[in-house]
Every structure is written in C-alpha cells, then in structure tokens.
Design a protein around this nucleic acid. Sequence first.
DNA 1: TTTACCACTTTGACGAGTCAAAACAATCGC
DNA 2: GCGATTGTTTTGACTCGTCAAAGTGGTAAA
Lengths: 259, 259
Amino acid sequence: MASRTIENYLKQLWLEEQAAARCAPGEGNRLVRGRPCVSMGRLAQTVGVTPGTTTTMVKAMADAGLARYTPRAGVRLTRAGEQLALHVLRRHRLLELFLVEVLGIDWAAAHNEAEELEHAVSDMVLAHMDRLLGHPSVDPHGDPIPTACGSVHMPDVSSLSDIKPGGRTTIVRILDQSPEFLDFARNCGLVPRAQVTVEKVSGQSQAMSVRPGSLPEVSISVAVAGKFQVVPCRAGRHRAKRGRPAAALRTAGPGQGRA
Amino acid sequence: MASRTIENYLKQLWLEEQAAARCAPGEGNRLVRGRPCVSMGRLAQTVGVTPGTTTTMVKAMADAGLARYTPRAGVRLTRAGEQLALHVLRRHRLLELFLVEVLGIDWAAAHNEAEELEHAVSDMVLAHMDRLLGHPSVDPHGDPIPTACGSVHMPDVSSLSDIKPGGRTTIVRILDQSPEFLDFARNCGLVPRAQVTVEKVSGQSQAMSVRPGSLPEVSISVAVAGKFQVVPCRAGRHRAKRGRPAAALRTAGPGQGRA
DNA sequence: TTTACCACTTTGACGAGTCAAAACAATCGC
DNA sequence: GCGATTGTTTTGACTCGTCAAAGTGGTAAA
C-alpha cells in the first residue's frame, strides 16, 4: 500500500485534475492529449511542500506506475493512480459525513479531522461506517463519495451563477470548503438540498440576489455563486442518498443570522 | 506533541510498567528505588523493533524529559512521560469502546484498529466520542479509561485464580487481549460483567472449573484463570460505567458454544 | 533576436526511524 | 576466579520525506 504521503499526493492530484477539468478549457491549464495536466507548482501548493519536493515525489509516483510525468509539462494520474486516489477520497468523504452525522461535529471542522483519519482507518472500519450511514452517495458538502470499487458518479449539474432571474433551483454541492466560507454559507442557508430562488442578477455590479427557501434574501457576487452547484428543483434525478437527515447542519442551521 | 512513534513507545512503556508492578515483586523485574524498571529487550519486543533501536529512542525520550534511563538497568517514565502515555491510552481505549459499541466491530479486532486511529484522532473528536458513549470508565475488555486530565482509577481487584471453590464473583477485566484468547473467552461466556462460580480447584492438575452464569462449566488452568480480574459479586463498588449495554458482546455472545 | 523572467529541476543536506552486526558488560556455572 | 552466555550498547548504513539554494529551460517582452 502507498505511504500516507503518497496517498496525499494522489488525492490532491486527483482533485486538481478535476478542478482543471471544471475550468473552461484552455484557461491556463495545460492539456496533454486532451486531458488536464497538473503543474508541479500547483500540486506543491495544495500538498503544502516546496516544488522541488514535488518533482521528486512525482517522479517516484511515476516509477511506481501511479502517474505519468512529463518534465516541465506536468503530471497526470494513471488508471492505477486514479483508483488509489479514489480509494483515499472515499475514506475522506465517508469520514467527513460520519463525523458530522454521527458525532455531531461541525461541518467546517470535519475536513481537517478527516484529513488525518483517512490514512488510519481500515477498509473494515470504513465498511461499518458506510453501513451505519446507510451507504450514502454524497458527503456533507455534496461531494460525491466514490464507491468501494473505485468509481465516482459525477452528476450533471449547473452553477448557481448561471441561473436566470426568477429561476428556482436546488443546491447540491459547495465547491469552496474553507471553514470561513462554509460558516458563511450555512448562516445564509445556502446548504446542500436548500431550494433557492434567484431574485435578480446585475451584469454591471457582477452581483446576484438569491433567496434560500423562505429565508432572507442574500446578495452574492457571481464569483461566489459559482461556488454553488445546483440542479433543477424536484427533478427527481440525482437524488443524493443520505442515511439520516443532516443533524449537524440543523443544529446550527440557517435562520441564526450571520452575526 | 510527540511523534506517533514516541507516542507508541510511551504507551507501551506505561503498559509494561503496569505489568511489571502486577507481578509479585522481585520476580525478575528490576526495581529502581522501589518502582519497576523496564528492560530494553522487553520494550523492544512490545514495540516491535530491535533492541538497538529501542536504546536510541529511549535516550531521545530521556533527553526530552519523558523518561529516566539508566544504561543496562532499564527505563522508567517521568511524570511528564506518564501524562503523555495516559493521554494516548485514553485515546486507544475510548476508540476501542467506540468501535465495539457504535460501529459494532468485533472486540478482538478493535484493538488493532484503535492502534492506528489513536494517533490520528484529535482531542475534539475524542470528546465527541466520549459524550456519545456516556463518559465510560472502562473499555470492552474492562481496562480502565484514563480521564482527560490524566488519571487512571485502578480498582481494587483480585484474580479469578485466587477464588476458592464455591466462591461466586464477577469478572471485571481480561488481561490477555490477543484475538484468539478473546474469542475463547467470549465463547465460554467469560466476559466482563459475567458472574462466575468456581466449582472446583485442583492443586495437583493446576486446573479449575468455573461456571459463568448458567452456562456450561468450563475447565481452565490456573494460569489462564490469572488472566481474569474479578470483584466480589454485587459489591456495589467499582461499578464500571458504560454508556450503553455492550451490543457487540451480545451479538456473538455466550451461549453459542465454542464451535 | 536577444534578454529577462518565471517555473521547474537538480543537488546537497538534514532529521526521523530503522536494522544488522560488532563491541561490550553483567552474570551464571563450574 | 574464569570462561560462556545473555542482554545491551554502539556503529555504520539505509529509506523516506523534506528543504534551500543553485542551475536550467521555455516564453514573453523589448
């Protein structure tokens, strides 16, 4: 099995490949045969080491058959690397959900805790958590949980920033998972499964007003709106399966103001 | 904070000191000013490294003020070292109980899982587990869980091997926690909180017959009986506090035979 | 086309943790 | 009291993951 260091590089690399793929193509992301290629600098930053260290580790990963590395171009996961990365990501996301749902830990704090635990928890323990949670398909932020056999279902979503005024939609996922942003989002009621109405959009000010359920209207920039992924209301498809109602999200839920 | 390696040495050292103290004094255990002193070979064995490595690490621990080391005599924890050791032990034992009670993991498997998790779980997460479990005082094997402030309550117990024929007593703790022995003990019904009657004791064969509750009589050697700590029945004192009934112990509990 | 710049890679070094094997000390048997 | 045994310590070497700083190569501006 890969060391926890390698596990971290793999996971981060996978996340960066996804982030690159999400951006408009050709937006500063180098492509290798059509697939996004992650730069050393970028990977170094997300893993939290110097670029020199990353070069070394990526070469080791390439030697182990986990990544394909082109000097000065970037790195991509191989199929084997992706499988391992998804395995780590499954542990991470199931743990996040477990911490929030079962232990009642704040969803903004869960990420860092899961970051440690994901390297310590065995498949056996994970299977028990999975069962207890009712085989969920998304974590507390709406991120899909890879299956035990290493596949991820990427639902077909749009961005809150693309919804036209008067449109009504359901938040399914929050892309920015910094504790501060999560606090903000929860305090506004902008949480997964919340239904929001777009009241108005101003092209000039690059801002839009949205109303989550019957809560107060909140004004956010288009850039911030881009951090929320949405699906049409009550579409019936892509219903994220969760074992229980989101207890932790209720406890300090919307309606408490932003104070 | 100490590295996870040091945490392991500390925990293991504490456990060895306890084991040494439990033995009859002067039974091969070197003493330094009345307190048990653990040999390098012994510590090496329980940590799972070579004696040379242990010498190096113990010297580092002594430099850090965590242990007092006398070359060729052995090592003892300082107060600071003991505090840290108890902190690790608390994590370990609470985790074991959590795995068994909440996740329904087999008590024989819980130990190894907790061994990994104890270095990854934060105090915050641990506090949530503690609350969910109802602030328990013993783990699934009856080992006392150190408090958050670093004290352990060592109840005043005797050994099953010292109970006279006809005596009735309650098992409170199992000292041998190898998976095989735990399986055996559970299959016989010799689990914490079980009431057992000592039917007969034979000095010559070094064996004794005990009957757990209304289950079949089982014959064990005096040495094996020594692995069970007991208190007088219904004494009312030292009642181990547990949040819930021991679900995992029930699921594959006594009465299923040894097959 | 040349120059600057920036990102990337290489190099040398380091700390943590480990082992194998050689050197050493205490003790036990005779 | 002397050697053999046993456990301990030392030594030298190794792996993993890391950094700082020097070197290198593309790219974009002049």
